[in-house]
Amino acid sequence: MSLMLMAVQSLNGLQLGILLFLIAAGLTLVFGVMDFINLAHGVQYMAGAYFAVTAWLLTGNFMIAVILALAASLAFGLLLQWLVFRHLMGRDHLDQVLATFGVILTLNEAARMIWGPSPLSLPIPEALSGSIVLMPGLLYPVYRIGIIAAGLAVALLLWLLIARTRVGMLVRAGATHAPIVAALGINIDRLFAMVFGFGAMLAGFAGMMAAPILAVEPSMGDNLLILAFVVIVIGGIGSVRGAFLAALIIGFVDTMGRSFATDLMKLFLSPSAANDVGPALASMLIYILMAVVLFFRPAGLFPARGT
């Protein structure tokens, strides 16, 4: 377990954390601001990836494809909001879970019918196609640095939007005192629709950024959705800052577990037992972390202000 490997794995942990943050940011925003459990966030992530692939096939240019796909993700989010989600506002969480779960099933099969069951791919854009040597024999794609940069940019943008703009102020006020904001003459439904559309766009953006390194296939968002929920529960529901820090912690813990748990177990156990226990422990690590956090800080590590 050399120092070099340790450093490389730290970088990998950071990058996984950033990817998780990209996905969790929209989820925590919608959940925290509108008190709406949107299980369909994962399929919005999938839709973003498919939109990008389709736009890329049409235009052949990564940047244009991302811009088109962002617009499509936004429109798609607003459409879902108009068709399904606005009817669920203020309803019981169980109703929301049931309805949005139905949306997952429907859209996953729809994606399979439209784009086929086989995985698709989006090539890495030319400008980011290089790689740097991380350690002897191991390259690190520049594109992954691009993902880290994009994640940091989204974090900064969200902070500016929420903390420094008038819309952000209204969103914060609407989250806690919706009737009063409405009484002041603000169209609260439109405000929430906007937040929702923005959340969908963030999910779609995460899908686009992940598409060149992951398989674009139906149900690709389902596994990630669980991780995203772990992130926002640990971070404190509704807190973008919490989601950012929790995503980094989870990315780091998960990567370190996968890298070193088996070797660590070999110090105490026979090699074959370590091979059984190590991977099992590594895959449970983040859930154990979540349980511990929930026990000591039920509201999460960094609860949103005002809630």
């Binding site: 794995q9 991380l134 996968r258 890298s259 991977p279």
Partner: peptide, 22 residues
């Protein structure tokens, strides 16, 4: 013997282990 999670997305950690072991 590296056992990964079912449905795993990112393999950076495993690839670094492989590169280190040569």
């Amino acid at each position: 013997e590296i056992f990964t999670q079912l449905g795993q997305l990112d393999f950076s950690a495993e690839l670094a282990r492989i590169a280190a072991a040569k």
